[in-house]
Measured scan of single mutants.
Amino acid sequence: SSQSQGISSSSTSTMPNSSQSSHSSSGTLSSLETVSTQELYSIPEDQEPEDQEPEEPTPAPWARLWALQDGFANLECVNDNYWFGRDKSCEYCFDEPLLKRTDKYRTYSKKHFRIFREVGPKNSYIAYIEDHSGNGTFVNTELVGKGKRRPLNNNSEIALSLSRNKVFVFFDLTVDDQSVYPKALRDEYIMSKTLGSGACGEVKLAFERKTCKKVAIKIISKRKFAIGSAREADPALNVETEIEILKKLNHPCIIKIKNFFDAEDYYIVLELMEGGELFDKVVGNKRLKEATCKLYFYQMLLAVQYLHENGIIHRDLKPENVLLSSQEEDCLIKITDFGHSKILGETSLMRTLCGTPTYLAPEVLVSVGTAGYNRAVDCWSLGVILFICLSGYPPFSEHRTQVSLKDQITSGKYNFIPEVWAEVSEKALDLVKKLLVVDPKARFTTEEALRHPWLQDEDMKRKFQDLLSEENESTALPQVLAQPSTSRKRPREGEAEGAETTKRPAVCAAVL
């Protein structure tokens, strides 16, 4: 046999249950609850290399294929790409003598399909299967379609040439079993990697079954959420508030809700932002270029202005709740996480202390139980975000031990490091100062900020419009641009040419 590394010779191994799959997660993409704000000051410096380099560890398999027929071997997927077919160049070659004697062998292509993985959001991997055969590759009886790919989820059954000719079961060793999710959700989405997690739940990458488009699904544990919100009269209202707010909003710089499922837990389906959180971008770069800050901040102002015009105060604006559309420097941003939002009543007064301390406005800290506050709290938070983006460190921090965090904020005395700000323009610093004003009545509004000289930049605004146009074009394009080929190089076993392929839609398939 010419099988590559990772293939075992026996096809009769006992199949494990899916609970053996491991679970991976990374930083929070968007969480309903406010958790302790991640610290920006503690960015690790590059460490000196050791005298002796450690040995390379043996790579762990990321997936496993269990053979369902004699003549096929099990495969431990270690590499990122595997070709399957009769050709000797394939990493998994159909060359077992037992297999060659079967009637089905002649229906398999020289290069029938490939399984591979690509880097997705949060640097996690996504597994795909890609059909290159004349007679078809099927996943859970659905045709992939020649020249098309679809994501592979845990426990997928792979069939060759005929939908009933099941050859492998695919085990993704990095994700959960699909069966743990409600059927209504599974009918519409293929669940994938964990993108982030918080005290009350997690955010998962998923794929729409009909279109193969990526989405983010925010899962909120009702049990954990009820415990964490025990002081509230009705904890469920917080989730329902977020859903109702998101459904009503329609702005290019605000995250869109696509679906909602109320089962044992809450499942909020949101558009996916491939670039992750602004927080991670700031930490990764230490600070952002001023031109990049301007492009992002302009969009934040437009989003918050839209919220305020619609009578909504976000109340928890922070870099973790600003998501980026891509890994590119120039990209769209979207505001997310409306769990603490407040729809303005007639009095415009709110007395609930919520939000993240580092970003809270002075009037929030001094008015607990005594007075109210209004939309100006969001403008203060925007000032803190702009400060961080321009400088790479927070204006107020618990680690300045000589003054408490509350006193720093209520006095408006931010930590100004001259040598850092020497590289920032006077106009940018002036806008920061106009937003970090203790008196909410004297603080800049979103309208005033948008009129500030720093943002009178036609090149930046043109760039934003171009990015918007690109997004609109990409969302308007159909996901499947061509029909699967019906040509046949070899006959199917026991049926006429093209008899099955043309009847089945290529579900969740995307043209390369």
Rank of each mutant, 00 (worst) to 15 (best):
I243Q: 00
I243L: 10
E244R: 15
L246R: 03
K247F: 14
N250I: 14
H251N: 15
P252C: 06
I254M: 05
I255K: 02
K256T: 07
K256W: 09
I257Y: 01
I257D: 14
N259M: 07
F261W: 12
D262W: 00
E264S: 09
D265R: 04
Y266G: 10
Y267M: 11
I268N: 14
E271W: 10
E271A: 14
L272P: 11
L272C: 12
L272A: 11
L272N: 15
E274P: 10
G275H: 08
G275I: 01
G275V: 02
G276H: 09
E277H: 01
L278A: 01
L278I: 04
F279V: 05
D280S: 05
V282G: 03
V282C: 08
V283M: 06
N285Q: 09
K286V: 09
R287E: 15
R287L: 14
L288I: 05
K289A: 11
E290I: 08
A291Q: 08
A291Y: 02
A291V: 11
K294P: 02
K294F: 03
L295S: 07
Y296C: 12
F297P: 00
Y298L: 06
Y298M: 02
Q299M: 07
M300K: 07
M300R: 03
M300T: 04
V304K: 09
V304P: 06
Y306G: 05
Y306K: 06
Y306D: 10
L307I: 14
L307G: 05
E309Q: 09
E309F: 08
I312Y: 01
I313L: 01
R315E: 03
D316Y: 05
L317D: 00
P319L: 12
P319Q: 05
P319N: 03
E320L: 03
N321R: 00
V322T: 10
S325H: 03
S326H: 02
E328K: 05
D330R: 12
D330T: 08
D330A: 14
D330H: 11
C331T: 03
C331S: 05
C331P: 02
L332R: 06
L332F: 10
I333S: 02
I333D: 01
K334E: 11
K334R: 07
I335F: 04
T336H: 00
D337L: 00
D337R: 03
D337N: 00
D337W: 00
G339V: 02
H340A: 04
H340W: 12
S341H: 01
S341L: 03
S341A: 15
K342N: 04
K342W: 03
I343V: 02
L344A: 05
L344S: 04
L344T: 05
G345M: 00
T347L: 10
S348G: 15
L349W: 04
R351E: 06
R351Y: 03
L353R: 07
L353Y: 10
L353P: 08
L353F: 13
C354V: 10
G355P: 00
P357Y: 12
Y359H: 02
L360P: 01
L360N: 09
L360C: 09
L360S: 07
A361H: 06
A361Y: 04
A361P: 06
P362L: 01
E363A: 00
V364L: 08
L365P: 05
L365M: 06
L365D: 04
V366E: 10
S367R: 11
V368G: 10
A371D: 11
A371C: 08
A376F: 08
V377W: 02
V377A: 14
D378G: 01
W380R: 01
W380C: 02
W380G: 02
L382P: 02
L382E: 05
L382W: 04
L382H: 01
G383M: 00
L386A: 10
F387G: 01
I388M: 12
I388P: 15
P394K: 10
H399F: 06
R400W: 09
S404M: 13
L405T: 01
K406M: 09
I409P: 00
T410S: 03
S411G: 12
S411L: 04
K413M: 00
Y414H: 09
E419V: 08
V420G: 09
W421R: 04
E423A: 11
V424G: 07
S425T: 12
S425P: 10
E426M: 01
E426S: 04
L429M: 10
D430L: 14
D430Y: 06
D430A: 07
L431Q: 01
K433L: 12
K433A: 02
K433M: 13
K433S: 00
K433D: 01
L435A: 15
L436I: 13
L436F: 01
L436V: 08
V437F: 07
K441T: 14
R443C: 02
T445K: 08
T445S: 12
T446H: 08
T446W: 14
E447N: 12
E447I: 12
E448S: 00
A449G: 11
A449H: 00
R451S: 05
H452S: 08
P453S: 11
D457A: 14
D459N: 11
R462Y: 07
F464I: 10
Q465G: 00
L467Y: 04
L468T: 00
S469D: 09
S469E: 11
S469I: 08
E470R: 00
E470V: 13
E470H: 09
E471H: 05
N472I: 13
S474C: 14
A476M: 04
L477A: 11
P478M: 05
V480A: 08
V480L: 05
A482H: 02
A482S: 05
P484L: 13
P484C: 08
S485N: 04
S485T: 11
T486P: 00
S487Y: 00
S487M: 00
R488M: 10
K489V: 14
K489E: 10
K489S: 07
K489T: 00
R490C: 00
P491R: 01
E493K: 10
A496S: 10
A496T: 12
E497Q: 15
E497A: 14
E500T: 12
T502W: 15
T502L: 12
R504L: 11
V507L: 12
V507R: 10
C508N: 09
A510C: 14
L512T: 10
